[in-house]
Amino acid sequence: MGQARALMGLSAQLDEELDFREGDVITIIGVPEPGWFEGELEGRRGIFPEGFVELLGPL
């Protein structure tokens, strides 16, 4: 779908969440519900709030 750069780090609180560090580039693979993305980073998949990232182009 597209890519996004992390504006800040996120520590996953639930198993389905993706954790990442500020500056990581995450591949967006879905939008499971409004306000959330599903992404992949370094072979890991999970969901995260859209406010933690900036899109690097259209989805």
Rank of each mutant, 00 (worst) to 15 (best):
M1R: 09
M1G: 06
G2N: 15
G2S: 12
G2V: 14
G2L: 08
Q3V: 12
Q3A: 09
Q3M: 12
Q3S: 10
A4I: 02
A4S: 03
A4C: 10
A4E: 07
R5C: 05
R5S: 03
R5G: 05
A6C: 05
A6Q: 01
L7N: 03
L7I: 14
M8F: 11
M8P: 06
M8A: 13
M8W: 13
M8I: 14
M8H: 13
M8D: 08
G9W: 01
G9P: 13
G9E: 12
G9R: 14
G9Y: 04
L10Y: 15
L10H: 15
S11T: 12
S11G: 08
S11Q: 15
S11C: 10
S11M: 10
S11E: 13
A12M: 07
A12E: 06
A12I: 06
Q13G: 11
Q13R: 13
L14P: 10
L14A: 15
D15C: 08
D15K: 09
D15F: 02
E16G: 14
E16T: 13
E16P: 09
E16C: 14
E16M: 12
E16R: 12
E17D: 10
E17S: 12
E17L: 11
L18I: 07
L18T: 00
L18W: 02
L18D: 06
D19Q: 14
F20S: 02
F20P: 02
F20M: 07
F20D: 05
F20R: 04
R21P: 05
R21W: 06
R21S: 14
E22P: 11
E22I: 11
E22Y: 06
E22H: 02
E22A: 11
G23E: 05
G23R: 02
G23Q: 03
G23P: 03
D24E: 11
D24W: 03
V25H: 10
V25M: 12
V25Q: 06
V25T: 09
I26P: 06
I26W: 03
I26S: 03
I26G: 02
I26Q: 02
I26L: 08
I26V: 08
T27Y: 07
T27E: 15
T27A: 09
G30A: 11
G30S: 11
G30D: 13
V31S: 12
V31C: 12
V31N: 14
V31M: 13
P32G: 07
P32D: 00
P32A: 00
E33K: 15
E33F: 10
P34V: 11
P34C: 09
P34D: 13
P34K: 13
G35F: 05
G35N: 06
G35P: 00
G35Y: 00
G35M: 05
W36E: 01
W36R: 06
W36C: 08
F37W: 04
F37L: 13
F37K: 07
F37T: 02
F37G: 02
F37P: 00
E38M: 14
E38N: 07
E38C: 11
E38G: 04
G39R: 01
G39D: 00
G39Y: 05
G39K: 01
G39V: 01
G39P: 07
G39F: 01
G39T: 05
E40D: 03
E40K: 09
E40V: 12
E40T: 14
L41W: 05
L41A: 01
L41M: 04
L41S: 05
L41F: 13
L41R: 11
E42F: 06
E42L: 07
E42T: 09
E42D: 15
E42W: 03
G43Q: 04
G43P: 00
G43K: 04
G43M: 01
G43W: 00
R44G: 03
R44A: 07
R44Q: 09
R44I: 04
R45V: 10
R45A: 05
R45Y: 06
G46M: 03
G46E: 00
I47V: 14
I47Q: 11
I47G: 00
I47D: 01
F48W: 00
F48I: 06
F48M: 05
F48L: 11
F48Y: 04
F48D: 03
P49H: 09
P49W: 02
P49I: 04
E50S: 13
E50G: 07
E50V: 10
G51W: 13
G51D: 14
G51I: 14
G51L: 10
F52C: 14
F52V: 10
F52P: 03
V53W: 00
V53P: 00
E54T: 08
E54S: 05
E54K: 10
E54Q: 08
L55S: 05
L55P: 09
L55A: 08
L55C: 07
L55Q: 07
L55W: 04
L56I: 11
L56K: 05
L56W: 00
L56T: 08
L56N: 08
G57E: 15
G57I: 06
G57T: 13
P58M: 04
P58A: 12
P58I: 02
P58T: 09
L59D: 12
L59R: 06
